[in-house]
Write a protein that binds this DNA or RNA. Structure first.
Lengths: 162, 162
DNA sequence: CTTTGCAGTTGTACTATACAACTACAGCGG
DNA sequence: CCGCTGTAGTTGTATAGTACAACTGCAAAG
């Protein structure tokens, strides 16, 4: 409050503080909007369903528990999401022959198609939104986001070492 | 598909595409996590409540409709959120003497205190998370986020000119 | 064969949200 | 003054996403 030296270059702490403040505010603003924006864009596939399908595509199938762990969701949530996706015909679920407790999840052809369509639509949105950015800026922004997100997060089941 | 020139420097379009892909993926990942992370950190104040209180602080009070418009929320959602915040004693609501339809919303002292505490906690989290970043990178990241978010968004009541 | 543990499902509850219908009020045209 | 029309906000109702706890079914250890 008393460190008003506005005509000299601000110390690093102050720059840092201002930048962190902006990052916090803007990340928060983005997070607030993202779900409803996604929902309005793809009434067929919520943000969570979309990410689950993406994960299945990347991994070429996986187990429900993997999804829960990876996305810090409760296993019951994943169970219901997957059930809905199966009902919609986007995911197929088969029992692992080696361990009958395990259900292996995979994209159905329709699931892959729906995912591809959604990816395309999202891509178009991002392309449009970032169309006037210089490629160098895009690269830097992308790497900052990677760095920001490369951070461990506590799953809901984990009591955060309490 | 036929533009395989992997040994020569990639054309701008391809860099662009890769960067946009990353931005999309990482923004999505962040959005997915943000709410639950915020909820786990502040059981008292959801991300939405937090932003509503912040807005009230910034504007030194405003109307419910302003919040709805600004945050692209339905007026009923805002009404209930504000009702909950009022019940919790964080917001005071009084009728505008000039127009009895209007309810002017303001932070209560407890609301200001709670908001300040939450801001502090969030700040600490962000500070820790960004502690090993160079100030220049923080500045750039912040400005990229500002630029990214500086984009119009359709409120839910707006049928997007259909 | 029993016990213990893991993978996933189901029961229940809560929050955020939207849309539609409603209430209360303001401002206008007669 | 009276009624129409538009606006601010509330309430009814429905839905989605989520968590926690209790349960089922199976596996692996003893």
């Amino acid at each position: 409050m008393t460190t008003e030296t506005s005509d000299s270059p601000r110390p690093d702490d102050e720059r840092r503080s201002a930048a962190v403040e902006t990052i916090q505010r803007e990340m928060t603003a983005f997070a607030r909007r993202a779900r409803s924006a996604a929902a309005r864009m793809h009434p067929e596939l919520s943000l969570v369903s979309f990410t689950l399908l993406s994960h299945l595509e990347e991994r070429h199938g996986c187990r429900a528990g993997d999804l829960a762990a990876h996305y810090a969701l409760d296993k019951s949530t994943v169970s219901r999401q997957i059930a809905a996706l199966e009902r919609a015909g986007l995911v197929v679920r088969r029992t692992d022959p080696d361990d009958h407790r395990v259900h292996v999840l995979e994209l159905s052809p329709e699931g892959a198609a729906t995912l591809a369509r959604t990816v395309r639509e999202r891509r178009a949105m991002f392309d449009e939104r970032l169309s006037d950015w210089h490629p160098d800026d895009l690269d830097r922004f992308a790497s900052y986001l990677l760095r920001y997100n490369d951070h461990p997060s506590q799953p809901p089941g984990t009591p955060a070492d309490n």
